[in-house]
Design a protein around this nucleic acid. Structure first.
Length: 485
RNA sequence: GGCGGCUUGGCCAAGUGGUAAGGCAUCGGCCUGCAAAGCCGACAUUCUCCAGUUCAAAUCUGGAAGCCGCCUCCA
């Protein structure tokens, strides 16, 4: 099965055929670094990270560019409010972003360009636009893109400029020839950061950096451009206008847009004040739970964030790791050098080829976990009698484990050694509870003694006591183990 | 007002013309002193509603209702 991708440009799934065989150029709009990232940002980053990994896995040499917008009105505003230099603010949030994305097991893109490091490229780009009559400079120092000079405007978002003018939600600016013309360069006011340019001291508008930097690293036209759905208009529409106006060739072949993270069925946004920061979620849930949550629904659909759904995902992840632990307990290990050959991998692979359907893919993993558990049960392993696995069962369990490990490299979940996963979970649980492991062990021993003496009411009392601390006891053939709920 | 999307069991969620994956929860059973975990079974004759195309539709077409998003900074 070959890769199919939903292309926003045409509103349908298309077979993915890169411009250059074997190579893929991908540009994704990164954050404006003026504030802490919320889980909506995490979705975009995790989704495109997964896409990046999948493209590489199926054999493409991928150049993945994700920018930082580090010059912007909001950054300047924050600087004025806090008295901190813009560069201090942007560095701070870039660091924070990197730390959080590293925690979420996100691979670094090939290149992470910053707008402020590409001012010359941006100025050159604007000059090309002016030279072609696609942009104009007004007296005060502003440079605007001339919408009337670009016929195809609106092809990505399905709008036409005439309708929008009728819509009349756009503030009229007398300096503009057409009210929809957008800023390429704006003059610096007093105390604002600036760069010298042919139009005086100023700074770039928002859209132009992506055209200039994608050109710099990926060329006049490239394969994939991504970002959140909210960037379709006007940001990506404007990028198309700028780049295609200069080069006269198709800017991007496949446009990919991820859906939002909602809270109570509404988009997470600053104006509603309903956003949840990544760091806040990381305090409560492991990175893999967050990743699994974000990948448990198709990337184009909205996904509703709630404590309940996080808890549910967390339980599901426990289930997978508990299965892996069972495998480890009977010495089933992933096979070396034989990845990508099992049925699970094949099913996973087909799901990913179908517009990166990670939700479906995760479903297959669960199906396999159930089958694997059944094989173990039927073999009587870990179920009272410690049976011996026969060769064919061993082989299929090894294959499942191998496939899950291969999948973990794409989804960025199920990455850990199960023992480490549960150890981390225990550690986290311990930090929230007023009891020591020693005390727990003592109680377990007391309960064991009580059970030996058939004093079951005392045994149950001890178990209930631990239960109140979210500690679950499991009596197995090798003794009693405990874990956090 | 313009444009786009969504509506699947108690909840979450796959499904893109061939007769409803999976997870969570619930109820039975096996196992257990009792539990937990795991497994087995039950749980949508049906996919918001109405009409149409088709041998066949959750999936295509037309219409209705509800919800959401973009059109202003936004992942």
């Amino acid at each position: 099965m070959s890769l199919k991708v939903y292309n926003t440009l045409h509103g349908k799934k298309e077979e993915f055929v890169p411009i250059n065989k074997d190579k893929v150029g991908m540009y994704v709009c990164g954050p404006t670094v003026y504030d802490t990232s919320h889980i909506g940002h995490a979705r975009s980053v995790v989704v495109f990270d997964t896409i990046f990994r999948w493209l590489m896995k199926i054999g493409y040499k991928v150049t993945y560019v994700r920018n930082f917008t580090d010059v912007d009105d909001k950054i300047i505003k924050k600087s004025n409010e806090t008295g901190e230099a813009c560069s201090f603010i942007t560095e701070k949030y870039i660091d924070e972003f990197h730390n959080e994305m590293d925690a979420l097991n996100v691979l670094r893109p090939s290149i992470e360009p910053k707008a402020t490091k590409h001012i010359t490229h941006i100025i050159d780009f604007i000059q090309m636009l002016i030279a072609k009559g696609k942009a104009y400079h007004v007296e005060d120092g502003d440079v605007y893109f001339s919408l009337d000079s670009f016929k195809n405007y609106g092809k990505l978002s399905g709008r036409n400029p005439d309708d929008m003018r009728a819509g009349a939600r756009i503030a009229v600016d007398k300096k503009k020839k057409n009210p929809l013309d957008f800023t390429l360069w704006k003059p610096a006011k007093k105390d604002e950061p600036f760069w010298e340019s042919p139009w005086g001291k100023g700074r770039p508008g928002w859209h132009i950096e992506c055209s200039a930097m994608s050109y710099e690293y990926l060329g006049e036209g490239f394969d994939i451009h991504g970002g959140g759905k909210d960037l379709i208009f006007p940001h990506h529409e404007n990028e198309i206008a700028q780049s295609e106006a200069v080069f006269g060739t198709q800017f991007v072949k496949y446009w990919i847009h991820n859906g939002f993270v909602d809270i109570n069925n509404e988009k997470m946004s600053k104006s509603l004040g309903n956003f949840t920061m990544i760091k806040k979620v990381l305090e409560k849930y492991s990175p893999e739970v967050i990743r699994m949550f974000l990948l448990s629904k198709h990337y184009r659909s909205p996904i509703d964030y709630s404590e309940d759904s996080m808890r549910e995902v967390s339980l599901g992840l426990d289930r997978v790791y508990a299965f892996l632990q069972r495998l480890e307990d009977v010495d089933v290990k992933p096979k070396q050098g034989q990845a990508d050959s099992g049925d699970l991998w094949q099913a996973f692979s087909d799901a990913m080829d179908d517009d990166f359907n990670s939700a479906k893919a995760v479903g297959f993993v669960f199906e396999c976990v159930k089958k694997g558990n059944k094989l173990l049960d039927d073999a009587g392993v870990g179920n009272g009698t410690s049976g011996k696995l026969d060769a064919s069962v061993l082989a299929s369990l090894e294959q499942v484990y191998t496939d899950i490990k291969a999948i973990s490299n794409i989804l960025g979940i199920f990455m850990l050694d199960p023992a480490d996963y549960f150890a981390a979970k225990k550690e986290k649980g311990m930090s929230e509870v007023a009891i020591t492991p020693k005390q727990i062990e003592d109680l377990i021993q007391q309960r064991l003694d009580a059970r030996k003496n058939k004093d079951f009411s005392k045994a149950d009392e001890i178990r209930d006591r631990l239960q109140d601390l979210s500690i679950i006891l499991e009596d197995g053939p090798e003794g009693t183990i405990w874990r956090f709920e």
